[in-house]
Computed example of a mutant assay.
Amino acid sequence: MGEDLEKVLATESQISARLSEMAAEIDADYAGKDLLLVGVLKGAVMVMADLARALHHPCEMDWMAVSSYGAGTTSSGVVRILKDLEIDIKDRNVLIVEDVIDSGLTLSWLVGNLRSRGPESVEICTIVRKPLAFDVDLDVRYVGFDMPNEFIVGYGLDYAEKYRNLPFIGTLAAHVYQG
């Protein structure tokens, strides 16, 4: 994969250290409360697994799959639920776990959808937030890294379903997605 990547933005050890810090914040914030982690498939698989293992607080996990992307690199603006939750979230403390917040539009829609189901709370945790996410009224409680508006892959982030398995986050060389 060497020629497909330009540079590493967050190493495996930096990601692990930041997730440990975030887990400590989450443990403190949810002390004495139930916690349901809701991972957004497919990208959040790595983040969700490592975050859950770093938590000392008991939690449940469920998954959703939503899509607003076509085959390209930008959002289509139309959100579809591909897989819904199996757990009823009424009166639950929900923590949405994301891999990346690009524009924030899909996540804003998802937060509204989940809040309509009557949870006690809905908060957001992401490993990566990009600058365009600041344009949307979206309170992201836990952020791993703020990264530039570049096409990034690794640690769950993909391009055409590839590169998710990289243990770090890096930029994809333009020839891969422009070519």
Rank of each mutant, 00 (worst) to 15 (best):
D4V: 00
E6H: 07
K7R: 15
K7L: 04
A10W: 07
T11K: 01
Q14T: 02
I15F: 04
A17K: 06
A17E: 14
L19F: 04
S20G: 04
A23P: 02
E25L: 04
E25V: 00
I26W: 02
I26P: 00
D29C: 01
D29K: 05
Y30N: 09
A31T: 08
D34T: 11
L37I: 03
L37N: 04
V40A: 08
L41F: 09
V45Q: 02
M48R: 04
A49K: 10
A52D: 02
A52Q: 08
R53T: 04
A54V: 03
L55C: 11
H56I: 03
H56E: 15
H57R: 15
P58W: 10
P58N: 07
M64K: 10
S67M: 14
Y69F: 14
G70E: 09
G70A: 09
T73L: 12
T73D: 07
T74R: 15
S76L: 13
V78N: 15
V79C: 14
V79I: 15
R80M: 13
L82K: 12
L82T: 10
L82Y: 07
K83R: 15
K83Y: 11
D84G: 07
L85M: 08
L85P: 04
L85V: 12
I87Q: 06
D88K: 05
I89M: 01
K90R: 15
D91L: 01
R92P: 00
E98P: 09
V100C: 05
V100E: 07
S103W: 00
S103N: 13
G104F: 00
G104E: 11
L105P: 05
T106S: 10
L107E: 10
S108G: 13
S108K: 13
W109Y: 15
L110K: 05
N113A: 09
N113P: 00
R115L: 14
R115G: 04
S116V: 08
R117P: 03
S121E: 12
S121C: 10
S121I: 13
I124F: 10
C125D: 10
T126W: 11
T126V: 13
R129H: 06
P131M: 02
L132D: 06
L132P: 11
L132W: 01
A133M: 05
A133K: 04
F134M: 02
D135Y: 03
V136W: 02
D137F: 00
D139L: 10
D139H: 12
V140D: 11
R141D: 15
V143Y: 05
V143T: 15
F145A: 03
F145L: 11
D146P: 05
N149K: 03
N149P: 06
N149Q: 13
E150V: 10
I152S: 06
V153N: 03
V153M: 08
G154H: 09
G154E: 10
Y159C: 01
A160R: 00
E161M: 03
Y163P: 03
Y163K: 03
N165F: 01
L166W: 02
I169T: 05
T171Y: 03
A173I: 00
A174L: 12
H175P: 06
H175Q: 13
Q178T: 14
G179Q: 10
G179M: 03
